[in-house]
């Protein structure tokens, strides 16, 4: 179900759009008055997720990346969806330092960073249909209210 404050954007899986994704995520999160650190966490996690799409989901072509931002109470949800090749072994992909592209100097830390910087990380993927990465981050509303 789509709520009034949900935002969806779609863009091409070009590496230059990683910056665009970070900027959108920061702009969406800004309305919840996050701390500088929370904002950094959100930008870092979305950057990792979108980079994964650019590098892995569409290895031989440019595809679509869909970002969906929503919120419920003090929890911000970001979904990153592609229609690419899918992840064949999600458990392995989540292992620190696991990468299928060492020749490109991929550190294999993308999901590790997302997991560390977000409160929740869910990955669903179907081979040759695509992947959705869902990340949730609690924004400290109590601090905002105390400051007010």
């Amino acid at each position: 179900m789509q709520y009034a404050d949900d935002v969806t954007i779609t863009f091409a899986s070009l590496s230059k759009n990683e910056l665009l994704a970070r900027s959108f995520a920061a702009a969406y999160a800004a309305q919840f008055d996050p701390t500088v650190r929370e904002l950094e966490d959100i930008k870092t996690a979305i950057s990792e997720a979108v980079t994964n799409v650019v590098v892995h989901a569409y290895p031989d072509r440019i595809g679509q990346v869909e970002l969906h931002f929503s919120s419920q109470g003090d929890v911000l949800t970001m979904e990153v969806t592609d229609r690419g090749v899918g992840i064949s072994d999600i458990q392995a992909a989540r292992e620190p330092m696991f990468t299928t592209k060492p020749e490109q100097e991929r550190s294999g830390l993308g999901f590790t960073v997302m997991e560390a910087f977000m409160d929740e990380l869910c990955i669903s993927s179907v081979s040759n249909e695509g992947t959705t990465v869902t990340m949730r981050k609690r924004i400290d509303q109590k601090r905002s209210m105390d400051m007010a």
Partner: peptide
């Protein structure tokens, strides 16, 4: 001003 795991790889 920003770095992610791609920077770690470098």
């Amino acid at each position: 001003t920003f770095m992610d795991s791609s920077g770690i790889g470098v």
